[in-house]
């Protein structure tokens, strides 16, 4: 009978808390993105996003300065109210879409291509934590171009233009801005992660996601005109997102919201369903072992 020496000792030191483990994946990918080939495109998009926010910042600054306002003369500037803060989301939606494609399309597909999923799942990490870590990468970018700058815009308005009166009347706006940003992040993240989990090539996942976006909008248009039922517009995630945004920003009574034949809550329900279904598919696709039949 062999006798084995017992001088081998496993690591007995402290380890990081389990609930923080997924952040390793997020941080690793962020680092990779800013050192990889696509970093110029990312930086360009972030600069473009900053330029959009600077425009809104300039509007608030001009409104706060009577001399500048009189210098502009006939130029009509929008009033700063709840609706003003939903405007930045329109151009940012486009930027978020592009960021999602650049950042998200390879998140799972590349791991599947490199057969790297077992590397993660043979560690003390569950598939759900793996997915959360990947979502975290997207969240950093999408929240950086939505929640953070628009909340700063709100702060700027309170400090420079509207003052305490504006804050008292619109104290809930930061919540609306943040929750709308989170919904956009979750929706874009869920769709791209699902697409990424279904293929083994990042570019294919991107094409698949674009196809889904265009395809479902075209299908909605066909269904609405075929059945002459405008309520079917809620099948378009673009409309749902806009309608939900109006509800979250307290603009349910606005003419824009009135043009929609469905409520903000029902739009939210559709979006929630899509997020849950997409994440469930992505979770199901994260398998430690690929079975080749």
């Amino acid at each position: 009978m062999p006798v084995y020496a017992q001088h081998y000792r496993r690591w007995m030191g402290q380890t990081t808390p389990r609930w923080l483990r997924w952040t390793v994946i997020t941080r690793y990918h962020l680092r990779q993105l800013f050192t990889g080939k696509g970093r110029l495109a990312l930086i360009a998009l972030l600069v473009l996003s900053g330029a959009v926010h600077l425009t809104f910042l300039a509007i608030i600054y001009i409104l706060a300065n009577a001399e500048l306002l009189s210098f502009l003369g006939q130029v009509k500037l929008p009033e700063v109210n709840a609706e003003f803060f939903i405007y930045p989301f329109v151009p940012q939606g486009f930027i978020v879409g592009l960021l999602t494609l650049i950042v998200g399309s390879g998140l799972i597909a590349d791991d599947r291509r490199d057969n790297a999923v077992p590397l993660y799942l043979s560690k003390p990490l569950t598939p759900t934590e793996y997915l959360v870590g990947k979502c975290g990468v997207l969240a950093v970018f999408t929240l950086a171009v939505t929640a953070v700058p628009v909340n700063l815009l709100f702060l700027f308005e309170v400090l420079v233009h509207g003052g305490r009166a504006f804050f008292k009347a619109h104290w809930w706006l930061p919540l609306s801005i943040t929750s709308f940003s989170v919904v956009i992040t979750a929706l874009c993240g869920a769709v791209i992660l699902m697409a990424s989990s279904l293929v083994k090539k990042g570019s294919l996942a991107g094409v698949f996601a674009i196809g889904l976006f265009i395809g479902h909008n075209v299908l909605t248009g066909i269904l609405v005109s075929s059945f002459r039922n405008e309520k079917l517009m809620r099948l378009s995630l673009q409309f749902d997102l806009h309608r939900l945004g109006l509800w979250l920003f307290g603009l349910d009574d606005s003419p824009t919201a009135g043009a929609y034949p469905f409520s903000g809550q029902s739009a939210g329900l559709v979006i929630l369903t899509v997020i849950v279904v997409c994440l469930a598919i992505a979770r199901w696709r994260i398998r430690p072992v690929e079975v080749v039949k």
Binding site: T15, R18, V24, I25, Y28, P124
Partner: peptide, 10 residues
């Protein structure tokens, strides 16, 4: 390092 961080090391 990445692999070890996944294992919970600082």
């Amino acid at each position: 390092r990445f692999s070890l961080r996944l294992n919970g090391f600082g």
